[in-house]
Amino acid sequence: MTHVTNSLQERQPDNYFYRLIHLSNIQKREFRKFIIALLFLSPSLIIFIVFVFIPLFRTVYLSTFLTNPLGKPVSFVGLEQYRRLFATPVFLNSLQRSLLFVAYTVPSTIVVSLGLALLGNLRLKGIAVFRMFFSLTIAVSAATSSLIFLYLFHPALGSLNYLLSLIGLQAVPWLVNVNTALPAIAIASVWLQIGLNTVILLAAMQGISEELYESAMIDGANYWQQFRNITIPMLSSAFFFLIVVDILAAFQTFTQIHVMTSGGPVNSTNVLVFSIYREFYFNGQYGFAAAQAVMLFLIMLGLTIFQFGILERQVFYD
């Protein structure tokens, strides 16, 4: 039988059978390529499936259950946990705290880093040393920086209040007051984020073509005009990237809270991730914590879609 088809092919290349076999050869090659690619991807895919995708679904699943103290789902409650989220102050407070924290940290991080990047971009001898200092916090962990700031903010021993008194300012109750605790943690977080932000902005600045500034100078533009009309627009894609990264980082803040305040005083620093941690790890409320985690995911997803869909259109790409 094969012999017959083979001889048919040789005589009539346009034959239906020939085309069929030929097509399936292409498909076979495609399939082989696909399998090879899958083999290359499989180590990553397996890890992603086991530790990212399945857990994401299990979080949603857990959020519709009451669990026993070990996290085993016991009774299905549907959307009850979500009703509880909006009926009790725990989640709403955490959500508000997280949003405030984003508002405190993201704009100030970007403004401070922009200043540092402008300084680091000066053409002066020894500027590399300053750049190194400005990017140093990349190497600092959240835990160590929190311990350092815990000292700096200390009401009696810390040096921050002492330095304020030197310039005639009143002592600030920093971490022990409901109104100042979250801003204090924001200061520590901004400091930690400065390194990465400055590095990214500096690199983007160095990517701006020299000719733009030269022609602006010929037109008589001063430093401020150059900054407003060349530097800022040319940095828009870097700003866009940093806004995304900084908002996500602010929403995910945990370590600073755990080391410095444990969510207090009076829940004033009980941000979303800390609340999730506390509900499942200490209170054994896995379902309730999972519902909060789902909300966190939805917020981040919404933000990312919003940012890529709307903000990116307004970004100027060079």
């Binding site: 530790f51 857990l62 996500l248 999730i276 896995y286 789902v294 966190l296």
Partner: peptide
């Protein structure tokens, strides 16, 4: 976010 999957 890693925190959304941390419980499972």
């Amino acid at each position: 976010p890693w925190e959304a999957t941390i419980i499972p």
